[in-house]
Design a protein around this nucleic acid. Structure first.
Lengths: 183, 183
DNA sequence: GTTGTTTTGTAGCGAGTGCTACACAAAATG
DNA sequence: CATTTTGTGTAGCACTCGCTACAAAACAAC
């Protein structure tokens, strides 16, 4: 009976790959199945719904993103140093697919789509937690507060990256850095 | 010949209403036409394409957003004061539809959709310009730099508003405010 | 080998998509 | 009034969507 579970996981991996590469928009069963080397018929055999398939694939993507974050964990550093590092991170080609799908999740969540809520929440918590752990501030409430600020700013950078040229985000980072410097 | 132009504008207004209310996702010709009191046949009579219709409707939405911004123009103020005001503004029910459709535009732009680029660019420039004009900083480059920072942060707040509860954005604003205070 | 269960292919349904052909009415133009 | 232009309804095409009915393999258990 583990065979079925194994096949489910394999399908989810392929579907996650396709979603990361081509986005949620227009991700229909037949292309997803083709990417996984099967037919839509089979996807709906292993998953009762398209909704169930998508929800589980998105959770897998969230898990992948978390491992990606954990892989680049280093020594805690001050905010003024962490900011440009994060700004550089979200531009990396390895991270970009996650930012793109993240923006799609945000747009859907804003319209009240509850299918994606678990994955979105997971990614959000993971990213925020990672930033908090990367800050070298002893006072916990102060650290969490700074993490929230940095998180918000990084999210804004993601938006600007998507919609504007590279100059505006770069200027924003350059101008924001001194704000975090120990005054 | 002005009759045709008039009808086009009227249709665009209705389509813009519908898009603001229900989003871009799943906005197909027949519901759009029904919202405008006609048939899909007529939409494609006044607009050669769905793409042309959407592009023009989005530009109208951008114009509406700009007038909305201009209506709430006041005396320039310091950044530490402008930040909570902007944070409150994007939560207003009158502004929220624009934020929702903006997030959809961002997600599409991130995937390289060039149909929406003009509208996205227009909204972006208008918002950034509005923030710059609302800041009372004499030095122009300094003002533009601060505007970029505030803009980025507000975009991040929009994302957080969509995906997280209200506590996280509120905490981010509260923690970010002292950073802008004259040290 | 004969059962019974799990996995898969084929085919298709009903609804929706953007878009078009055709016909006809209304209105402008001579 | 006759004619051309402009506006509109009906019907439908070719396609995609999620999903399902049916049946035949593949495999297991006895």
């Amino acid at each position: 009976m583990a065979k079925q579970e194994l096949q489910r996981e394999a399908l989810l991996e392929s579907v996650a790959d396709h979603l990361l590469a081509h986005g949620l928009q227009g991700a229909s069963l037949r292309p997803l199945a083709a990417a996984a080397g099967t037919s839509d018929r089979m996807l709906l055999y292993y998953f009762k719904d398209k909704r169930e398939l998508m929800a589980e694939a998105l959770l897998l993507i969230a898990r992948r993103f978390i491992t990606l974050l954990d892989a680049s964990r280093g020594e805690p550093m001050p905010a003024a140093q962490l900011l440009p590092m994060l700004a550089g991170m979200i531009g990396q080609p390895l991270v970009k697919p996650y930012m793109q799908i993240w923006l799609e999740l945000v747009a859907l969540a804003s319209r009240g789509d509850e299918t994606i809520q678990p994955a979105a929440r997971k990614i959000c918590d993971a990213f925020l937690g990672w930033i908090g752990q990367a800050l070298d501030i002893e006072n916990k409430t102060e650290r969490l507060a700074q993490a929230a600020v940095l998180f918000t700013f990084i999210e804004g950078l993601g938006v600007l990256d998507a919609v504007a040229g590279p100059e505006l985000p770069a200027a924003a980072v350059k101008a924001a850095r001194p704000l975090f410097d120990p005054a």
